[in-house]
Design a protein around this nucleic acid. Sequence first.
DNA 1: ACGCTGTTGCGTGCTGGTCGCGTTTTGCTA
DNA 2: TAGCAAAACGCGACCAGCACGCAACAGCGT
Lengths: 150, 150
Amino acid sequence: MTSTVDELVAQLRDGGSRVTTARRLVLTALVKGAHHPTAEELLVAVRALAPDVHASTVYRNLEELERLGVVVHTHLGHGPATYHLTTEAHGHLVCEVCGATMEAPEDLFEAMAQGAKRRLGFELRPYHFAVLGVCADCAAVAATLEPSVG
Amino acid sequence: MTSTVDELVAQLRDGGSRVTTARRLVLTALVKGAHHPTAEELLVAVRALAPDVHASTVYRNLEELERLGVVVHTHLGHGPATYHLTTEAHGHLVCEVCGATMEAPEDLFEAMAQGAKRRLGFELRPYHFAVLGVCADCAAVAATLEPSVG
DNA sequence: ACGCTGTTGCGTGCTGGTCGCGTTTTGCTA
DNA sequence: TAGCAAAACGCGACCAGCACGCAACAGCGT
């Protein structure tokens, strides 16, 4: 399941795209880096090895990789988008209070997805935007501060 | 349930905020205008009656109204945020293909909310970001075009 | 090695939104 | 109804995140 850079590079070639240094470095950063990198963070990682890579190159590569189905981007909040490999696609729960991000168990969306499909004919793809809420820790703190408020 | 402008104005006063022409017009636009206005659309509506109102005034008013709990903003996709009165808060389903926006039935999130609460202690507030997917019409079209693809 | 064409670096531009400043307006008080 | 402090406003500058046009460069099939 964990893709290697070489496998992803092969996907690029299959899709008719060329394999460049910048592109390979973006993939490397996605495979080996942190879990929810922004374009900016990817740029930093790429520049660590190839200092002259331009920001727009990273944006264009991410766009191309997304078009090929190799990566997806997700919005976890109001900041910049975050990117992951498609093999790692998953839903996200983000705490509105402390900003903590957690991956949603796959089956969490299932009942909702089935309900939407049956009642509205709507096929859920709940990965693109995070679902906000309040995490356990922050809920506990809030309960302590204002125990009477529902 | 449908708030009048006067009731909302009263909420402003109760919150310690002053009531200005621009502010009243923003509220009027929210009450009487379309269902998911952007800040830009609200600005246009406000300017129809008060041409000199500045964009930043609308932004600041929306921020203040949100702080007072009178309005909330929601992200339906990649474009600008949309605003509604808190009394009209609801989840949204947005079609990735055609962009159609529908309000989610209230109970659609219930099973998921309960699951998140029980298993993760996470209190869902699924209103801030829309949940994407493919609407019935677009799913039907997609099925026609590529019937063999799962 | 050659050449076609995809890709890059760079600058510039755009959208959506924020901020600081000096002026106006609101709403309290008398 | 006038006076006053603070809130809100109009305005312009600015910022983040990202897209785009163009000339130079580089991947890769031959």
